[in-house]
Each structure stands twice: as C-alpha cells, then as structure tokens.
C-alpha cells in the first residue's frame, strides 16, 4: 500500500470519484473472478483512456491486479481487486460511514 497524506483518514487512492467507482465495481465481483477491460468500461461508462489512467494508479497502490492474456490472437486484459484492495475499499466505506455518523457525544 502507498503512504501519503490522508484526508480525514480517508485513503487518497480511493477518495476520488472515478477510482471509487472502479473499486466499487470490482468489489461487486466475487472473489476469485476477473472482469475484462471492455466489460468494466461498459459497467462504468468511462472512456478507455480515463479508465486506464485510474487503473494504473490503483495497480500502483497494489489494489488492482491486471492480468494480460490472449483470447485467440487478440490480447485481452482482465482486472480484479486484490485482497488489500478489498480491505482498502471496506475500510474506506467504513470510514465514510463513521464520518457521517451524528457526533452527539459519541454514542455506542
């Protein structure tokens, strides 16, 4: 995982709308499954260039695993959330919920 400044304790890698949407989508896929690049792009409605840029950032952070393979003679790219990526997403959404909890004396 990358170090760096955190915003209210929120992971800066995920705390950006595009990367949050990518992470949320990959978290919706069962553990042990991968999504093809074009399918992921369709589920997100993002341009290929934009998606690639954000995927690289997520891959650098160790959150996304990129698998390059061939289907016949055409190269294909598959994406999956890594275990640290899943943990980071769960931690991030839990942190958001904690921030949104009404702060009336810190009830249990």
């Amino acid at each position: 995982m990358t170090s760096g400044p955190t915003l209210n304790g929120l992971d800066p890698v995920i705390h950006a709308e595009s990367r949050l949407r990518i992470t949320a989508t990959l978290a919706a896929v069962d553990r042990g499954d991968r999504l093809s690049f074009p399918r992921l792009q369709k589920l997100l409605d993002m341009t290929a260039g934009n998606l690639s840029t954000h995927l690289r950032r997520l891959e650098d952070a160790g959150y996304v695993e990129v698998t390059k393979t061939f289907e016949g003679r055409t190269p294909a790219t598959y994406l999956a959330l890594t275990d640290p990526g899943r943990v980071a997403f769960a931690t991030y959404t839990a942190a958001l919920r904690a921030l949104l909890r009404p702060t009336d004396g810190g009830s249990a």
Partner: peptide, 28 residues
C-alpha cells in the same frame, strides 16, 4: 469525470457514489 484526490469530495456524496455504482454493477 476527472477529479483529484487532494480536493477531498464530500463524504455523503462519495458514499452515495459507491453504493449506486455497486448496485448498478450487480444489476448488470
């Protein structure tokens, strides 16, 4: 749809983004 991590978007909006996108992915 480009945004920067340093801008620090609103937590409520971000939670809604995550939940909506997950629901959409599962639906499809």
């Amino acid at each position: 749809m480009t945004d920067d991590a340093t801008r620090g978007p609103d937590p409520a909006a971000m939670l809604a983004v995550a939940e909506e996108q997950q629901a959409r992915a599962l639906r499809l």
